[in-house]
Structure formats: C-alpha cells, structure tokens
Simulated scan of single mutants.
Amino acid sequence: MKKKHPILKTVKRIWFLIAISFTIWLVYSYQAKGVSESFLQGSDIISVKDNDDYFLFEPKQKFDKVFIFYPGAMVDPKAYVPLCRKISENGIKVYLIKMPWRLASKGYEIPKQLDLFADKTKTYILAGHSQGGKMAAQFVKKNPNLIDKLILIGTTHPRDISLANSTIPILKIYGSDDGVADERTIFQNKSKLPATTKFVKIDGANHAQFGYYGFQFGDNSARISREKQQYKTLKSILSFINQKPF
C-alpha cells in the first residue's frame, strides 16, 4: 500500500484547519449583533410572535398590507428584526422568515407552504436581502399571481432568471460601497428587470449594514453609520409600499 507523502498530509491538514476556522468565523460574524431584546416585545401598537418558522410583527389596528422578508445567506434572521419591526410600526403586518440552515434557497417556498397568502383582500409585498433577494425574485417568477410588490435589497439578482416581463412594481435598493453586490454588476443585470423598476442608491452604504450583524466576507467598510443606512432603507421601503401601483 502506497504511503501518503508527509508534505501532502501536512497540506491537507492545513486546508482542513483553514476550512474549519473559516466556518467558525462565518457562524460568529453572521450572528445578530446590537439587537435589543426590546425589539421582540409587544407594544401598544404591535404584537410580536417568535416561532420555528418566522418572527411575526402584527399591528393591533386594522391593516391591509402584508410584508414578507427573506434574510441573506447564513445570516441570523434576528439581524433583520429592527428593520422589520419598524416597518410593522407603520401599520403593516410583517413576517421575517427563518430559513432552513439559514439559506433562502432551501426555504423560499415557506410562505406558500404556510398559506400566508390566504387573505385575498390584502396587498402582499415580498422582500429579501442578498441571497434572500435572489430567492424572492425566484418566488415571484414561480408564483407571479401571489405577490403585489417586490423589493430587492443589496443583491445583483435576478441574474439567472428574468423578471423583465413582470407587471408588478419592483424596487431595488443598493449601497454605493457594497462589496458583495456592487453597483456595476447590479446594472449589468438591469435588463432582467422591468423598465419600470425603481432603483434607490444609498451613498456610503455597504452590504452588512442592511442587517445587524458582523463584517461580511468580500464587503467594503461603510462610510455611514448602520443607523443611518437602516433609516434610509426603511424610508425607501415605506415610500414604495405606500405608492399606488402603476
């Protein structure tokens, strides 16, 4: 039996250690950071639920809009709780979906499986960050009659599919300093979206600050605070949601 060369064995061990270290770093870096537990407590205007499938923020007063959010790949869904709660505080029911293995590619059909679109009197807005945006676009492609508006945040997608013929309003929010979903690639894929798509650029924004988590591999440093980036994202989302369909 041929013995393995000692140098080859050493190289394999080094690569194994690098892979393990990188995985540990990913898990740590993509954990939610700076999210107060108060964000998961109810108030006079909304109730909050946390179960195995989603975080739910529901207005106590009558509402007519439902917002469903897909997290980025590997990111702790809790990292998007501040944004989703603030959206709900504006009279919108919000589902923040918890993806299997933290991968939207594995769970993007969850809202349909849970029958979240049962009430036909409501307006349904689907949104996602990064890979969550990719799979939100995929959901709309497969289920064009279930979603009334689509919001893509910090993503170069759709890239492998086309929504150019979609008739629903679409918003794309991106950061000028996003190293993961850079502006050049975003506009390379512009033809995959309808001509009516609205693009919103947030100057100084990077990729990770669309959520509350650590530094993301491949990203750039932001030139604005997380709070300012979140505020501008929220403002753009609410303006788009409340805008009458064309």
Rank of each mutant, 00 (worst) to 15 (best):
residue 1 M to S: 15
residue 6 P to I: 03
residue 8 L to V: 14
residue 9 K to E: 12
residue 9 K to H: 06
residue 10 T to W: 12
residue 13 R to E: 07
residue 19 A to R: 08
residue 20 I to Y: 03
residue 21 S to F: 13
residue 25 W to M: 13
residue 27 V to Q: 09
residue 29 S to L: 07
residue 32 A to G: 11
residue 33 K to W: 12
residue 33 K to S: 15
residue 34 G to W: 09
residue 35 V to Y: 01
residue 35 V to Q: 01
residue 40 L to W: 04
residue 41 Q to M: 12
residue 42 G to P: 05
residue 42 G to C: 07
residue 45 I to F: 09
residue 47 S to R: 14
residue 49 K to H: 13
residue 51 N to M: 12
residue 52 D to K: 15
residue 54 Y to G: 01
residue 54 Y to F: 15
residue 55 F to P: 02
residue 55 F to W: 15
residue 56 L to I: 14
residue 56 L to W: 05
residue 58 E to Y: 02
residue 60 K to R: 15
residue 61 Q to L: 14
residue 61 Q to M: 14
residue 66 V to C: 06
residue 66 V to I: 14
residue 67 F to C: 07
residue 67 F to N: 01
residue 68 I to R: 00
residue 68 I to H: 00
residue 73 A to Y: 02
residue 77 P to I: 01
residue 78 K to C: 11
residue 80 Y to H: 03
residue 81 V to P: 02
residue 83 L to F: 02
residue 84 C to F: 01
residue 85 R to N: 10
residue 86 K to R: 15
residue 86 K to F: 13
residue 88 S to F: 05
residue 89 E to M: 13
residue 91 G to S: 11
residue 92 I to C: 08
residue 94 V to I: 12
residue 94 V to P: 00
residue 95 Y to T: 10
residue 97 I to D: 00
residue 99 M to H: 03
residue 99 M to D: 02
residue 102 R to W: 07
residue 102 R to T: 11
residue 105 S to M: 10
residue 110 I to H: 04
residue 111 P to M: 03
residue 111 P to C: 08
residue 112 K to P: 03
residue 112 K to F: 10
residue 123 T to H: 03
residue 123 T to M: 03
residue 124 Y to T: 01
residue 125 I to A: 03
residue 125 I to F: 01
residue 126 L to H: 00
residue 128 G to W: 00
residue 129 H to L: 06
residue 130 S to T: 06
residue 131 Q to D: 03
residue 131 Q to I: 05
residue 132 G to I: 01
residue 134 K to Q: 10
residue 134 K to N: 07
residue 135 M to W: 08
residue 135 M to H: 04
residue 138 Q to V: 01
residue 138 Q to F: 03
residue 138 Q to K: 10
residue 139 F to Y: 11
residue 139 F to H: 00
residue 140 V to P: 01
residue 140 V to W: 00
residue 141 K to R: 10
residue 142 K to C: 05
residue 144 P to I: 11
residue 145 N to W: 03
residue 146 L to A: 08
residue 153 I to F: 10
residue 153 I to E: 00
residue 155 T to N: 09
residue 159 R to S: 15
residue 160 D to P: 05
residue 162 S to N: 08
residue 163 L to T: 02
residue 165 N to T: 12
residue 166 S to W: 04
residue 172 K to C: 09
residue 174 Y to R: 02
residue 179 G to V: 11
residue 179 G to K: 07
residue 182 D to F: 14
residue 184 R to K: 15
residue 185 T to W: 11
residue 187 F to P: 04
residue 188 Q to C: 10
residue 189 N to Y: 09
residue 191 S to F: 07
residue 192 K to L: 09
residue 194 P to K: 08
residue 195 A to Q: 15
residue 196 T to A: 13
residue 197 T to R: 05
residue 198 K to A: 07
residue 200 V to Q: 14
residue 201 K to T: 08
residue 201 K to D: 01
residue 203 D to K: 14
residue 207 H to L: 11
residue 207 H to E: 09
residue 210 F to A: 02
residue 213 Y to W: 09
residue 214 G to H: 04
residue 216 Q to F: 05
residue 218 G to Y: 04
residue 219 D to Q: 06
residue 224 I to H: 04
residue 224 I to C: 06
residue 225 S to M: 09
residue 227 E to A: 15
residue 231 Y to W: 10
residue 232 K to C: 02
residue 233 T to Q: 07
residue 233 T to A: 07
residue 234 L to C: 10
residue 234 L to N: 07
residue 237 I to M: 13
residue 238 L to P: 04
residue 241 I to F: 00
residue 243 Q to R: 06
residue 244 K to M: 11
